[in-house]
Amino acid sequence: MSGPLPGEKEGGDERGPTPLERKDAGHPGQTTPPMWDALSYVLAGPLLFGGVAYLLDRWVGTSWLVLPGVLIGMAVSLYTVWVRYGRQ
């Protein structure tokens, strides 16, 4: 990691990094969310698509759309989880 450290402007003052800053350097940060967060995706699909299907049901007057909606939602959720967590 060669970017400027916290509190240091790029090309600004000429002081070198303090010992603490040097110690803190080199942590790139984590771009993949931890597994705890996969729950959000797993819930989002069924809730979103099931919800849309429920509204469609009420609008059109049918009553069978919720189940396929939830199923599609689960599929999309699993796909997204795979894209986010399993693809690297």
Partner: peptide, 12 residues
């Protein structure tokens, strides 16, 4: 903070 946000921004 440091491990997840990264050296650059974590202190804030």
């Amino acid at each position: 903070a440091r491990d997840i946000i990264g050296s650059k921004d974590f202190l804030k």
